[in-house]
């Protein structure tokens, strides 16, 4: 597989215990060093392609997760890191936990583990890259199609 672009990620901690967060950052820093592939952690949702979420959702963080997701431009991919983000994990029975991230936004890749190891996080992000590539192709096709339609319409209007 090759990368055509350097995908940027945005990370948000929904209600994680920090264990998965530090592993996400650890996979970006020396030793694992995802940054050498141009994968950079961005603070701005409007710059990001991949949304990495850790932890399950609760009523207040679900609004934030949805907000960040809506602000990200298309095409976008969501990676849920840790068993909390997948299903609620050990906190599933807590009164303030709604469950996994997929209760709020569509998730493409699930990375299990408590805490998820950097190797598996990297694996998950590589999977996400494939999906991203595919989505951007579809997205491009759609755009070309819509432009064609628009041109047709314009011609139609001119002839009118």
């Amino acid at each position: 597989m090759f990368l055509r672009k350097s995908p940027w990620i945005i990370h948000y901690d929904a209600t994680s215990c920090n264990g998965c967060d530090i592993e996400v950052v650890a996979s970006l820093t020396p030793l694992y060093d995802l940054e050498r592939f141009g994968i950079i952690n961005m603070g701005n949702p409007k710059h990001a392609d991949i949304f990495v979420v850790t932890g399950s959702v609760n009523p207040s963080s679900s609004a934030v997760v949805r907000n960040i997701y809506d602000q990200m431009p298309n095409p976008k991919v969501v990676v849920a890191v840790g068993i909390c983000a997948t299903s609620g994990g050990i906190f599933r029975e807590c009164y303030n936990v709604l469950g996994g991230i997929d209760k709020v936004i569509p998730v493409d890749v699930y990375v299990p583990g408590c805490a998820a190891r950097p190797e598996s996080i990297i694996d998950g992000i590589v999977k996400a890259l494939d999906i991203l590539e595919q989505r951007s192709r579809e997205f491009k096709k759609l755009r070309v199609e819509s432009q064609r339609q628009e041109k047709k319409l314009r011609r139609y209007r001119l002839n009118d």
Partner: peptide
């Protein structure tokens, strides 16, 4: 309140 899970009650 963004990370509150309520684990004391667990």
């Amino acid at each position: 309140g963004f990370v509150h899970r309520g684990l004391e009650k667990l």
